[in-house]
Design a protein around this nucleic acid. Structure first.
Lengths: 176, 176
DNA sequence: GATGTATGGTATCGACTCGATACTTTTAAA
DNA sequence: TTTAAAAGTATCGAGTCGATACCATACATC
């Protein structure tokens, strides 16, 4: 049952000339903070090799949905970002199968499923030494700005975080 | 989270020269009863088109893992079955990611997850007019042999069912 | 019974996935 | 300074996958 549901969900997204993986990459880039929008992080998220992700990114760039820029500090890094076209496409995208599956469920059921899935996925990723990812604000390195007015901070990277950063997915996240 | 877990699970199975879909087809054929081992049923199970499944089956036949035979009654039908090589390969297959995810969970959690997934998947498939599949013995057409010694029966197809049939997956299954 | 339509399956095509391998550039460590 | 590690790209080949067109068989309606 788990494998069947997984196949239906993962095979979803043959629309607008894109492929399922490309949609998922687009959604990740829209939800990830600036430190996590790199080919390497995308590969970790999608569970693919660097080479495959490099191709996927190239395809998205050809379509004008994603832009690549180098990093000034570490010149090995490539920063990825959605272009305006990418944003609009994602905003106009139809509901995913996953959303269609979750939508009719009772709120209590959804919450229970979320908790179970989080335990299952988290345990698995830890056992296989994979990155867990997670919301920046739930991280043990997250330092909330208590007074207001100042930005929050990341104690691991030592950088300021604005509100949108703190609500985004981060590759370095470790549960508090 | 759901889409990420789905991708990890569905992308699992790049071993022994087979692809993820091919493994899943093999597992389906091993678990399905004789009425459900056709290309069409496989397509419904995998959520793919007939053409794609035709290719997958052809690849498995080339590898000598699956055998195709015509049906005497309805000559449009193709019956699929695992060859002995297919059986041994499946028996020696390493654990799937789905199994690795489920294995360390507490029995109560696993049961709760199963119930939630069943509701979610069942609701979705019904809403999209897809086949639900399910275990033969849980079907409203299943007529258990009360006395023992005689085979069970399927009231829909009007055929006898032995023990292994009744424990297999059936495409015609409708929950009792 | 003949005709029309639905059903089950295959063939072919093109874009893309995906891992494997080899490679370059850049950073960090010994 | 040498060495190793990390981030990314290029290229290859087998295979996926949907789309379209097509064939054979079964069934329904006249």
């Amino acid at each position: 049952m788990l494998t069947r549901a997984a196949r239906l969900i993962a095979g979803d997204g043959h629309a607008a000339g894109l492929k399922p993986v490309q949609w998922q990459a687009l959604r990740y880039l829209a939800a990830a903070n600036r430190f996590s929008r790199t080919p390497g992080a995308l590969a970790a998220w999608l569970g693919q090799t660097k080479g495959t992700v490099s191709q996927t990114v190239a395809a998205l760039e050809r379509k004008g949905l994603v832009a690549r820029t180098g990093d000034a500090g570490d010149r090995r890094l490539v920063r990825l970002a959605l272009t305006p076209q990418g944003e609009t496409l994602l905003a106009s995208a139809p509901d995913t199968i996953a959303e269609a599956m979750l939508a009719p469920m009772a709120p209590a059921d959804r919450a229970a499923l979320e908790a179970l899935l989080a335990r299952m996925l988290g345990g698995f990723l830890a056992a296989r030494c994979h990155r867990p990812f997670g919301l920046c604000a739930n991280c043990r390195h997250f330092r909330r700005d208590a007074e207001g007015g100042n930005p929050h901070r990341c104690a691991l990277l030592g950088v300021p975080l604005d509100e949108s950063d703190s609500r985004a997915i981060c590759i370095e996240q470790e549960a508090a």
